[in-house]
Nucleic acid binder design. Sequence first.
DNA 1: ATGGTTTTTACTGCGTC
DNA 2: GACGCGGTAAAAACCAT
Length: 331
Amino acid sequence: MQQRTFTEHNTATKTKQSSPSEQTTEDETTQETSCPECSGNIQLDAGEHACVDCGLIVEEEHIDHGPEWRAFTSTEKDSKSRVGSPTTNLMHDNGLSTNIDWRDKDAYGNAISNKKRKQMSRLRTWNERFRTRDSKDRNLKMALTELDRMSSALGIPKSVRQVASAIYRRAYDEGLLPGRSTEAMISSALYAAARQEGLPRSLDDIAHVARVERKEISRTYIYMKSELGLAVPNPTAQEFLPRYSANLGLSDETEQIARDMLNKMYEGGHASGKAPTSLVAGAIYAASLISDDRYTQAEIGDAVDVTAVTIRNRYKEIHDVYMSSLGDISF
DNA sequence: ATGGTTTTTACTGCGTC
DNA sequence: GACGCGGTAAAAACCAT
């Protein structure tokens, strides 16, 4: 079942990529259309669609948080997804599907024969099946494309993607989709899946690459979680550590010290109520002071998405806890 | 809605390069 | 003078009630 949809998705991908026009216009960082003012070229650069000739900025809102700047895996897929379908709407069939009246009358209102009636009944059944299957497939395909795009931008492994798509499928089957954007739903599924698999991403991380606001993702996520009864463990700071330390290029030693600190914090019950990311940031900073590969608070804050103030606060606490636990290590 | 907690924003002074 | 760092107050965001 799952397998089937994946292969379908792949073939669709292939056909789309073989279209020559899309291949040629797609570049890593630029995407061109024409300016409504002077019909010059529009370039997408750093999230702004700006006209090359007159400087007019079109679609300031339509920021494509494309993965170029952070894609460590298969970028081919991403370039495809950017020309893909829009993210909202398209929930149903856009009202273009066939409807067969349930009344067994012909166009003039006369009753129809027994044989016809049976035929119509069969037609209704199949029409219904095809229609729902079609729209489901379309929706799923779109969602999976989106999932792929976000996942590779965040470097999320396949196992998590599979869990995410399973969650999304369930959400679809339970009828949670209508009234909500696909994008928000698939983002939530990804968020939940990453946490379930012990490779959590912060809501901010997801929101960075998603095409909807963080707020909406979190709303959708809460809704989805309660409707599906998902058991999503709270992420621990330790789970965040490897990724951020890799991003920063910490030495193994430093990372180990940071992990130690985090363990101490959790054991001592000093971690409750604190955002896991803030703890990692504080621990990394503290650890970077002990071992000598120093990082500034700003650097760490940038990487972990936490302010320097928060780092200082966590750092102070960690310092106290770690000091008392080790005796007289000073830093 | 409310109140308590955490995090962010904005601003400060200090020391160092 | 720019930069990193430490602190503070107040606003904003978050959470449980």
